[in-house]
Design a protein around this nucleic acid. Structure first.
Lengths: 110, 110
DNA sequence: ATAGTTTATCGCAAATATACGATTGAATAT
DNA sequence: ATATTCAATCGTATATTTGCGATAAACTAT
């Protein structure tokens, strides 16, 4: 992390950027949608729906876990995933706040 | 783009991912905030505020332009930037829709 | 005309991200 | 006991991102 200067930005800026980064790949958007479809945990079927190899999907799931957008539990040999609603709400708030701020000034230019 | 399989995902998924990607770096979040601060175009002062070299900021601006989150006009030797409100609103809608869908199911799991 | 500003672009280096197959480890079924 | 299934991780290849300095192009001021 020597060349990347993320430390030099504010916490809020990094928080929004990190969240955006988590959903900045269509596969991860699709995974979130797929998990959200169900009321209960989803075990495994994600791979069948996506046009990606099992190992690749596993990597994307790992990223979503890192961003705390989903939770994962082990059920025997299977792994089950759920949306982490708290994080979703928190980031919904953060991004809405950002856009509200961004929108508060009237466009008097361009 | 042989290894990246973005074509295999839906338009909506890609649209949200692309937008998220545009704000997935704290520098770009900071730039948007800085531009949004003013009512009129902002020319140049962005570089002074950010902890990055001029060429790097220019690259980030280029990405924001590509995502149509900002517009740029030339004013003599200077370049002036504004928020593209239409795009901001469109993507605000897209992401809210996504989260609403994601939120509509009650968490009966995990 | 000349020197200084401003900003985009080029060329490069280093770091990250994306993707896959192969392997591993653990649980399950036969 | 053995084979099978499931999913994480490892190793690897390739592409993209991030960052900077140097340069170029275009305007501005002297």
């Amino acid at each position: 992390m020597s060349i990347h200067k993320k430390d030099e930005f504010s916490k809020k800026e990094n928080e929004l950027a990190d969240f955006a980064n988590a959903i900045s790949h269509p596969a991860r958007v699709a995974i979130l949608k797929e998990i959200a479809k169900r009321e209960t945990c989803i075990c495994g079927e994600i791979v069948e729906v996506l046009p990606l190899a099992q190992s690749t999907v596993s990597q994307h799931l790992k990223e979503l876990l890192k961003a705390e957008l989903i939770t994962g539990t082990v059920d025997g040999a299977k792994s089950c995933y759920c949306i982490n609603w708290k994080t979703v709400e928190r980031f919904e708030k953060t991004s809405n706040e950002f856009f509200k701020k961004t929108n508060s000034n009237n466009p008097k230019c361009c």
